[in-house]
Amino acid sequence: MVKPIWIARDPSACSGCRRCELACSMHHEDWMWPEASRIRVFMPFPGVEVPHLCAQCMDYPCVNACPVEALSTDPDTKAVIVDREKCISCGACIRACPGTVPYLHPGDNKATICDLCGGKPKCVEVCTEAGYNCLTVVNEDPNIHRKLYSRNPVEVAKDLAVKFFGEKGEEVIE
């Protein structure tokens, strides 16, 4: 019995080390392949690093948007699961996502979305090990607030920039 988990994220605490990208792609692709990682660290300006990953919105707009029913949800972890056989690379799920999180894989061009590693996310493991605590696992029931965390990473970075740099922050990302 895997309890529902969710990955809480604190963008201010992200160091930008990208070990999460490496750990994720190690697990899913067997080697270091940042561009195939389900968690992606954006850095619209240095110092302003933003981890971007699925938030498991309670209403799963991506699942609903898929025209060929290639997306479903795991009953235990509540993660989004992509059937790569069925996926036709149309991009509907990318457009449906409030934060534009999914992307087409650099290898097979299929929709790629975090599957929470079956309940023991590798990204959290390495983030915790390094002491950043930017990504932490919490055992909470799904709720509508999760969708709020699905934000365009550049928008997040613009907020972070002001928090860090004050007025100057408004100038560093166009």
Binding site: L148, R151, V156, K163
Partner: peptide, 10 residues
């Protein structure tokens, strides 16, 4: 929601 406070003001 929280992210808009957390990311910009906290």
């Amino acid at each position: 929601g929280v992210p808009h406070y957390m990311d910009r003001f906290w």
